[in-house]
Design a protein around this nucleic acid. Structure first.
Length: 188
DNA sequence: AGCGGGATCCAT
DNA sequence: TGGATCCCGCTC
């Protein structure tokens, strides 16, 4: 078994956002912080499809806050919600598109607390803060990798969480994906 | 310059 | 069910 799994290349993220979202499930997320490797397995994600998607932060165009989400793929779009929790996205598709995948839950694999279900807790466990805004997620210190111990799973599709403000059409779209039966999914 | 809401979490 | 808590986008 390789001790250093291969990084997902930038081209992985330069594809349709719903596809990237689904394919991120089961991948390892590896963050090296203060010399320590923290590893989680992605079990729940949401796709945000750009300015036409009324639930996406980019629906109101380019602003200082959404700059990174309009940037090149494979970078982090990090923001603060409810004044206290950070959420982390991976930017997808070519620069200028304004699309991203929100990481909602990971399963602890190495050096992580048990509290990783939900986007805020995920960031807390991984040590992700607003300082990581725009950070390259194809770097040695912070990247995704194929799980060498991966096992098959089914993908569940559901409406996204907390986006009622987007109106019926966009709130109802099944753009939330998670691994069926996984204990670390944030809600059923 | 001020105002209101939000891709959440936790205790009650 | 509601409180914590603050950045950002919008309006004045």
């Amino acid at each position: 078994m390789p001790s250093r799994p291969k990084k997902l290349p930038r081209e992985f993220f330069n594809r349709a956002t719903t596809l990237v979202a689904q394919e991120l499930l089961g991948k390892l997320l590896i963050h090296t912080i203060e010399g320590e490797q923290r590893i989680g397995r992605v079990v729940e994600v949401e796709a945000y499809l750009g300015p036409g998607d009324l639930a996406a932060h980019t629906a109101r165009g380019l602003t200082p806050r959404t700059r990174a989400m309009f940037g090149p793929p494979g970078h982090a779009y990090v923001y603060l919600v409810y004044g206290m929790h950070t959420c982390m996205n991976v930017v997808t598709e070519p620069a200028g598109t304004g699309t991203a995948v929100l990481l909602r839950a990971i399963e602890p694999v190495k050096n992580l607390s048990d509290k990783t279900r939900g986007p805020g807790l995920l960031c807390r466990a991984l040590g992700v803060t607003l300082q990581d805004y725009g950070r390259d997620l194809c770097s040695d210190d912070f990247h995704f990798a194929v799980d060498p111990a991966a096992e098959p799973f089914n993908i569940v599709e559901r409406p996204r969480v907390g986006v009622d403000y987007a109106g019926e059409e966009w709130a109802a779209k099944p753009l939330r994906f998670y691994i069926e039966g996984n204990k670390y999914v944030s809600r059923k």
